[in-house]
């Protein structure tokens, strides 16, 4: 993973929102944030989308706020399952990878759950 690619997605609005959501929720930025962003970057390559585009696709503006696009949310939920299945490691490690991408969506307001153990 090239350093400049990481920097470029870190600057995107949705990655900023993710980092700031994690900071707000847990009191500090996770020590492994750079590694998490690298995983998100790999997922973005996997679905051939930029982070901002993923979030934009999953929601739409309506009067008084935003609405989640159910089909797109399901699409990305399935893509995360596929993505985590494609990475090396046991089921737990794979789920942890998928959960990092889920966390990106969650902190951008896209409701998402994994199964037990992230399956």
């Amino acid at each position: 993973m090239r350093g400049e690619a990481i920097s470029s997605i870190r600057d995107s609005a949705t990655v900023q929102a993710w980092v700031s959501g994690l900071r707000e929720q847990w009191g500090e930025e996770p020590a492994d944030m750079r590694a998490r962003i690298a995983i998100l970057q790999r997922f973005c390559a996997f679905v051939e989308r930029e982070p901002d585009a993923i979030i934009e696709e999953c929601s739409r503006d309506v009067d008084g706020g935003k609405r989640i696009r159910i089909k797109k949310r399901r699409f990305y939920s399935e893509k995360i399952d596929e993505f985590q299945a494609s990475v090396e490691g046991d089921a737990r490690a794979q789920a942890r990878t998928g959960n990092i991408v889920r966390s990106f969506l969650i902190h951008n307001g896209i409701f998402m759950q994994g199964g037990v153990g992230g399956q």
């Binding site: 994690l22 929720q25 889920r102 994994g114 153990g117 992230g118």
Partner: peptide, 16 residues
């Protein structure tokens, strides 16, 4: 509570 959720997430392998 924050610590508790972190530990539960780790044990049950849930997103944070």
């Amino acid at each position: 509570r924050r610590q508790e959720i972190m530990q539960l997430a780790e044990r049950l392998n849930l997103p944070t």
